[in-house]
Amino acid sequence: MQSLVSLSGVGHVYPNGFRALSNINLHVHTGEFLVIIGLSGSGKSTLLRCINRLVEPTEGTVSFSGVDVTHTTGDALRMHRSRIGMIFQDFNLIGRHSVLDNVLYGALGRTRSLPSILGQFSAEQRAKAREALEIVGIAEKQKSRADALSGGQQQRVAIARALMQKPKLLLADEPVASLDPATSHGVMKYLERINKEMGTTVICNLHFLSLVRQYASRVVALKAGVIVFDGLPPDITDAWFKQIYGEDAIEVEIR
């Protein structure tokens, strides 16, 4: 079976000389819900960004749907990114703009620059945006300013923005790290639905092992930019936990 995402020997060194990733070999198949765990600074965020090429790897190759995208630029890079949705810890909505506009921005990758700047989104795109808002259960807020919403609601708008892209793959960079436990499950449940019902592959960075065990179909652990574990959630034993998070770590549960 061909993998959706393939990383071979991927490494990344930032311009200041900091090595974020070393020799990452990772193959993600369609339909997986892959969770990446690891301490802050272990390279999780850089790894996600190598996939949609917000970061250009300094070593190795990245392929998506069998196409090498490691050093893609220009329109091909735009096209590549538009196939991959992404949500963030801090939601990264445009706070001053309406919820509906924020969702429409998911279509930017497939809209020409000038019409989009003049606000000319098609009726079809608007209908799609409303549909995406309905999927995350927030359609009634479409006219509100995005920064007027609660954290959980903002993350749902961000998910709707990603859905607007009709993505083959959804990247989630610590999507619940800024949220309280109850809201966290709400957001994770939407990611689960998108994975199970729409068949969208999900790669998600997480901190809480309890969430990992509940939602992940596969877990990869990073330590100092190296993959130290690749397996099923139940296989993360106490010994593994201590190896990933250090001897002093204590597992915190979130229910």
């Binding site: 890079l77 992404m86 963030f88 930017l108 990758g109 700047i117």
Partner: peptide, 14 residues
């Protein structure tokens, strides 16, 4: 927000 908009495949101008 720059990352988020870039991640949708937006052009530099967008």
């Amino acid at each position: 927000p720059i990352e988020a908009i870039s991640a949708t495949g937006a052009s530099q101008l967008q």
